[in-house]
């Protein structure tokens, strides 16, 4: 799992690679944390190279979504692979998180 965050003013472009599972879910949350405090942030997460997420990873996405709403920002997940999208669909998370 690898997280790269590029920031330009309020615009955050995040590149997410690999698997988010039990072994690295805490690390993923830790790396994402800066985005949870940003105000009016416009966050785009590129999930092209993301292979899988466990329920703990979903929890982190949920926390991020909630904090973005609280901070009056915007969150978008893009280029998501179908098998990952399916996880978001099944759990209903695609209803509360914008996936393009």
């Amino acid at each position: 799992m690898n997280v790269t965050i590029n920031q330009k003013e309020n615009n955050y472009h995040v590149i997410l690679e690999g698997r988010i599972d039990t072994t690295n879910a805490d690390q993923f949350q830790h790396e994402i944390e800066p985005l949870m405090t940003a105000k009016d942030a416009n966050i785009t997460i590129d999930c092209a190279a993301m292979e899988y997420t466990s329920s703990q990873g979903l929890r982190t996405f949920l926390m991020l979504q909630k904090s973005v709403i609280a901070h009056n920002g915007k969150l978008e997940l893009i280029n998501m692979q179908p098998q990952v999208k399916e996880i978001f669909d099944i759990t209903g998370f695609s209803n509360i998180i914008t996936i393009k």
């Binding site: 979903l58 949920l62 759990t91 209903g92 998370f93």
Partner: peptide, 9 residues
């Protein structure tokens, strides 16, 4: 129909 997981909203 997939509803939202519980405990979220």
């Amino acid at each position: 129909a997939s509803n939202l997981a519980m405990g979220v909203f």
